[in-house]
Design a protein around this nucleic acid. Structure first.
Lengths: 260, 260
DNA sequence: TCCCGTCTGTTCGCTTCCTCACATAGGCCC
DNA sequence: GGGCCTATGTGAGGAAGCGAACAGACGGGA
């Protein structure tokens, strides 16, 4: 249980919860470990669990009838996989694939729905996360239309870098291409360009971020916008304390009083 | 008031509400009329009202720093403009522009938030609508990346056609280009192609849909996917009656009893 | 140590779409 | 009925990216 308690802190949504709410949820949580390429859910499949990534990064990919794919959203330790559970639709027409191996904490769909219906801090956080997800997807829609492969590659690398502790990313160009919705060759050219510029170094599925500031300059504005909006929406004002009430306007008081 | 009552029925979200909830909301609703090009909200501006379109169609447009624009979502009489109000972020980094002139019913932000917090039928409907919005935006992200101007034009025309009663749409190619995130000339070529194929006929901002089935065949799969998913999520099971409880599992009972 | 599978680099022709520039044409107003 | 604004048509030239085909090159396993 101590094990799990420390794990829940690795997911920002859970760690932002008032302590007592988190303790109430703890017994219903399970730790799982994801490997690269694991499928969290298939298109239109019913989810049994919601997953709160701790170290893993999950990508929501849409696959066209002809097999072409493009990423529509991604979720790291600042979010949750399975918003359709509390939004009420239960399924979504895309699949979720693990992009970066790592851990997650999972919660039964029913538990999540019941907790959401209480209208407490978790509901509040899940809704704000939902908005940040919408922002991210919307930005991807505009970016995919208007920006070059190279700029989108930068954005992708930066967003991935934000999700891990090290400067090393493990992903092949083939995989990046499927996320960016382009061909592997286009990624090769763009990556070589970034390497020539001294921004990254890579070899056989291992990418080193050498110059993060340079990457940010080379990326399109979309990275900044998504980053800023995510930070605004999921701002952890006073984490792990009762005084986070400023963030939680919806019935947090009774919940806290009751918990006392 | 009778005037408004009939108007609320023209918005599917409101018309799906149990009668008593709708009656409770009625005094807080106002009818407004939108003209083509009206701006419902600006990027990052604070919304005072949520708008439930009755005849109007509103487009959520993202504008890049260089002025290029692309549509990220649209909202007709089956939805609501201003999801950020109940999701908790209050603002969004895009603007909402009226694409098709018509009416809407508006509700004060505070009223919407208070009603949402009750956890009744409206909350349920708003959440399901939010998921359909996410689906729509996600599909746009993939479609913008993978499909040609002509296919996207077909998708756009079909979605617009779904929002109006007639076979006539009022929109210039310039406007369509800003929505599709392309140039006016590209739209001209694509539109001419569709006209040659006998699917549409147009002149100076007036587009007639001649062969809807043909348009659907010429469109990418994205139209079908969005249509199907929207229908699934916003299915009006037993509209305008109390027995819609099957759709509304979250606290509808107390709300209804209290309303009695 | 060698083999082989996977990852990356490179080329060529082709399509789509963009940039820029200008031509036509419908319809409103005087 | 003529002027003028706006919407649409067209075309040359170029950039980005696709499709396919193939060449190197790293590294794990026999």
């Amino acid at each position: 249980m101590r094990f799990l308690a420390s794990n829940t802190c690795a997911n920002q949504l859970l760690s932002t919860l008032p302590l007592l709410e988190r303790e109430r949820l703890l017994p219903g949580l399970e730790h799982v470990e994801f490997a690269l390429g694991d499928v969290v859910y298939e298109s239109s499949s019913r989810l049994e669990y919601a997953y709160f990534p701790t170290g893993a990064v999950v990508s929501m990919l849409y696959t066209m009838e002809d097999g072409a794919t493009a990423e529509v959203g991604r979720c790291g330790s600042d979010g949750v996989v399975g918003v359709s559970l509390f939004l009420g639709g239960d399924t979504t027409p895309n699949r979720a694939v693990v992009q970066i191996a790592g851990g997650a904490v999972r919660m039964r769909a029913r538990t999540l729905q019941a907790e959401f219906a209480r209208g407490g801090a978790l509901q509040h956080l899940l809704l704000r996360y939902t908005q940040s997800l919408i922002t991210q997807v919307a930005q991807a829609a505009a970016c995919n239309r208007l920006h070059s492969v190279e700029k989108r590659l930068c954005r992708f690398l930066l967003l991935s870098h934000d999700c891990v502790k090290s400067d090393e990313l493990f992903m092949t160009q083939e995989l990046i291409a499927s996320v960016l919705g382009g061909r592997r060759e286009s990624v090769t050219v763009a990556a070589a360009h970034l390497q020539d510029a001294g921004l990254i170094r890579y070899s056989r599925g291992r990418i080193h971020i050498l110059d993060r500031a340079g990457l940010e300059r080379a990326a399109c504005e979309c990275y900044r916008v998504v980053r800023a909006e995510t930070d605004r929406l999921l701002a952890v004002r006073v984490p792990n304390t009762y005084s986070s009430g400023g963030l939680l306007s919806q019935r947090p008081l009774e919940a806290r009083v009751r918990a006392d």
